[in-house]
Amino acid sequence: CHSECLGNCSQPDDPTKCVACRNFYLDGRCVETCPPPYYHFQDWRCVNFSFCQDLHHKCKNSRRQGCHQYVIHNNKCIPECPSGYTMNSSNLLCTPCLGPCPKVCHLLEGEKTIDSVTSAQELRGCTVINGSLIINIRGGNNLAAELEANLGLIEEISGYLKIRRSYALVSLSFFRKLRLIRGETLEIGNYSFYALDNQNLRQLWDWSKHNLTITQGKLFFHYNPKLCLSEIHKMEEVSGTKGRQERNDIALKTNGDQASCENELLKFSYIRTSFDKILLRWEPYWPPDFRDLLGFMLFYKEAPYQNVTEFDGQDACGSNSWTVVDIDPPLRSNDPKSQNHPGWLMRGLKPWTQYAIFVKTLVTFSDERRTYGAKSDIIYVQTDATNPSVPLDPISVSNSSSQIILKWKPPSDPNGNITHYLVFWERQAEDSELFELDYCLKGLKLPSRTWSPPFESEDSQKHNQSEYEDSAGECCSCPKTDSQILKELEESSFRKTFEDYLHNVVFVPRKT
């Protein structure tokens, strides 16, 4: 048989008469490798580009789960590009990614509803959504962080984005990388972005840091009482949809009607710091009717980097990364020049730590249904340095008659930039024990000054392991946590139920 035959053949030295091919099969003959313009397919066939392209389009058009959109890589027609490569849609070739590779997620039936953290986790790592997304989240724990972890990498949506009755959302900033909504599939009414009845939605994105392009379709905003109209108009300008909307697409009466839409800028007039305090004062603000001013709200939190936005980490279910302080308005003076500047002394802060701070007014709604208010920009203030805590785990070892090696770990709280350490030492008198000992005694162990690591005695271990207080009263049991108490109650309830079950099964009433 021919060298490319495997198993047997019907005619000697003829690659077209093989029972099976050793390498690849091409047009009725066995070959060692697939010549151009053919590609290896499933490690035994040679196919042309049209064959591989037909497989790709067949799966793409069917949208069946589990099928493969075949691509070409290293002269092979394979189910998908290997790690580190992405497909070129024009020629199906796998090309190296520039940075992290995109991950295209194809949605069944063309859309997916995100109504819980669990459903959001199914899209973790996706960068391109081939379909439409509907966000409908009523509640949950730590929602802002969970949504950002699972949806934060999405850069492109081919269909539309719909935010509907998501009472738990305060902001859409968890879509931190969303840059493009194509609108290839539109919501009824030709809408590519749809926001309806979101009672706590206050911000779409921080438009000073976020760009969003909507290729096709219109915007729809109705019944978002805490979303200011200025935020919607800003989205029109940034996304390129200005002029597409009709009169009733953006409701003037049901958007922002319960919001404090600040239209003035508060400026800080005085800032002073110490290692654990920050004193702030800002310019006074009074609405047209000074009785509408209820006070100020001061927001602050630790910020290692200057990239904080107002609604980071917030949701309507209680999660809030900001510390909020309510401040009463100052006494009002008739003389504008003698107006008191409101302020606040922030206490209990960490030394040498940068804080993000902003302040906003708290006002009631005027009778004319106009909203007044003022808010400052987010500023960054760093507390002063102070003395560091003591170095940890000092170790001293003498390696000769004239040297001592000293080692330690950095302090747990540096409280500033540590530039150097101060080492103090003092000579001590020799131990009298060394002169009084009889060095001729056998088995004498000389006193040693070398360091030995501390260890816990058996008594201390027994005390720590004991669940009861000892007789001397030195140790006591740790208080039980809520989960331990709940577990004990469940076990007790189970024992009672099981005992009742045994009584009912074992003891049967005697027939009379």
Rank of each mutant, 00 (worst) to 15 (best):
L294I: 08
L345W: 14
T309M: 02
L293I: 04
R347Y: 11
D384H: 14
L133G: 00
L252F: 14
H341C: 15
K253Q: 12
S239M: 15
G131M: 01
I163Y: 01
S376M: 01
L280V: 13
S171P: 00
Y167K: 14
E264A: 03
L172T: 12
L280N: 00
H106F: 08
I271D: 00
G348L: 06
R281V: 00
S396L: 14
E231V: 07
S321A: 11
G256M: 07
K350F: 11
G256A: 07
T118V: 05
A259M: 06
K277Q: 02
E148W: 06
L196V: 14
N334W: 05
I134A: 08
S119P: 04
L201W: 06
L219R: 02
K177E: 15
Y223N: 07
G189K: 03
N211M: 12
L180R: 09
K112Q: 05
F220A: 07
C105G: 01
P351I: 04
L279S: 06
N307V: 13
W207F: 13
C228H: 14
I137F: 13
Q216K: 00
K337P: 14
D326S: 06
F311C: 04
Y355F: 12
V238R: 09
F174G: 02
L180S: 10
L227M: 13
S321P: 04
F299Q: 07
L178F: 03
F290Y: 10
R347K: 13
L201A: 03
V308K: 08
L265R: 13
L204V: 04
L204R: 00
S401Q: 10
V359T: 03
W286A: 02
I405S: 14
N211P: 09
Q354V: 09
D276M: 03
Y167Q: 15
K162E: 04
N263P: 13
G295D: 08
Q216A: 09
K253T: 13
Y194K: 12
P388M: 00
D249Y: 14
L107S: 08
G256W: 09
I404L: 01
Y223G: 08
F311G: 09
I114W: 01
T213R: 09
F296N: 04
W352M: 10
F358G: 15
E237A: 03
L392W: 04
E264F: 10
A251L: 06
S376N: 00
T323I: 02
L186P: 12
T113Y: 08
S319T: 05
G125R: 11
W205K: 02
N248Y: 10
E236L: 06
F268W: 08
R369V: 11
L265E: 06
N142M: 11
L266P: 00
D292E: 04
G139V: 15
S260I: 11
R347F: 10
W344Y: 02
N263C: 06
L178Q: 00
E302Y: 04
F311W: 09
G318Q: 04
N130A: 10
F221C: 14
K350H: 14
D289A: 04
N150K: 15
G256D: 02
G189V: 15
I379D: 01
H341E: 08
C228L: 06
A195H: 04
N263K: 09
E237M: 10
E148C: 04
L349I: 07
I129S: 01
F193C: 03
L107N: 12
L180E: 11
K409V: 09
K407L: 05
V170C: 04
N198A: 05
T309R: 08
I114E: 00
V397A: 14
L186D: 14
L107Q: 06
L345S: 13
D328H: 05
G240T: 03
I135A: 03
R347N: 07
L153D: 03
G313H: 14
L133A: 02
I405G: 12
L219W: 09
L212I: 08
E109T: 12
R244N: 05
R370N: 15
N141T: 10
Q382N: 12
S173N: 12
A259Y: 04
C261L: 06
T185P: 09
P336Q: 15
G189E: 15
K267Y: 15
I188M: 02
A259N: 02
L252H: 04
K177N: 15
F221I: 15
L172S: 03
F220G: 15
E302L: 10
A195T: 06
E187V: 10
Q245Y: 06
S116C: 15
T213G: 08
Y300P: 00
T323F: 05
G140K: 05
T241F: 10
L265K: 12
S208I: 05
D115Y: 02
T113N: 06
G110V: 04
L169K: 00
G373N: 02
S158R: 10
A145M: 10
E368M: 12
K277Y: 12
V117C: 02
W205L: 05
N399K: 04
L180D: 12
N190K: 15
D367Q: 12
Q314Y: 02
S173K: 12
A195M: 11
S119M: 14
L143W: 15
I135Q: 00
Q245H: 05
D292V: 07
R244K: 15
F175P: 00
L293P: 05
N263I: 05
N141F: 08
K277S: 06
K234Q: 12
M235P: 00
T113R: 03
G343F: 03
E302A: 11
T353Y: 11
P351D: 02
I163H: 02
K350I: 04
F311R: 13
P287W: 02
T113E: 12
N190I: 11
N150A: 09
D249F: 11
D206M: 08
K337L: 08
E155L: 05
E368N: 01
L147D: 00
I378Y: 05
F299L: 14
Y223V: 10
G131L: 00
R332W: 06
P342K: 04
G131Y: 02
F175Q: 00
L280S: 02
S239Y: 08
C317H: 15
S400T: 07
K360M: 04
T361A: 12
D312P: 12
M297I: 11
V363I: 14
S208M: 07
I134W: 08
L252D: 04
F358I: 09
N248W: 13
E122G: 11
W286S: 06
Y285N: 09
E109K: 12
I214L: 08
N320A: 08
S401L: 04
S260W: 03
L252C: 13
P336K: 04
L392I: 07
R138K: 12
W352I: 15
V359Q: 00
S119E: 05
D206F: 06
N150M: 07
N150P: 06
S400K: 09
P342D: 10
L161F: 05
I188W: 04
P411A: 04
P411W: 01
S171L: 02
L392R: 14
N255V: 03
N200A: 04
W205F: 12
K177V: 08
C317W: 09
S158M: 10
T127H: 03
I163M: 10
L147H: 02
Y380V: 10
G295T: 04
A251M: 11
S319M: 15
V325P: 00
G313C: 04
L147N: 02
Y167I: 12
E246K: 14
R179P: 00
T371Q: 13
G256I: 04
A251T: 13
A385P: 14
W408P: 01
L196R: 10
I154S: 01
M297A: 04
I379N: 04
N263D: 04
N255H: 03
H106D: 04
S171G: 13
S274C: 05
K301N: 13
F290N: 15
T361W: 03
K112A: 07
S400N: 12
N340M: 03
L201P: 00
L201N: 00
W322P: 02
F358K: 08
E184R: 09
S116K: 15
R202P: 01
L298E: 00
S398C: 15
V104L: 07
S192M: 03
H233N: 06
W408M: 01
Y194L: 05
S132P: 02
K350P: 02
T383Y: 00
D115P: 03
R272W: 01
S333W: 01
M346Q: 05
S269V: 09
Y372Q: 08
E264P: 10
R370Y: 09
A195E: 00
D335C: 05
T127F: 13
K242F: 06
N263E: 13
Q403P: 00
Q245F: 05
D197I: 01
W282H: 01
M297F: 01
L172I: 15
W207L: 07
K209E: 03
K177M: 04
V117T: 02
W205Q: 01
D257L: 13
K407A: 00
P329W: 04
A195Y: 00
N255L: 06
F193K: 00
S319R: 08
G217M: 01
E237Q: 13
I154K: 00
V324S: 06
N142C: 02
L280Y: 00
Q245T: 13
S239I: 13
S269I: 14
C317I: 15
V325M: 05
N263V: 08
L161M: 07
L123C: 06
T273G: 06
S338W: 03
D328M: 10
I134E: 14
W408V: 01
Q203Y: 14
E262S: 08
H233V: 07
P342Q: 07
E155H: 15
G125Y: 08
V238Y: 09
L294M: 12
Y380M: 05
E302P: 09
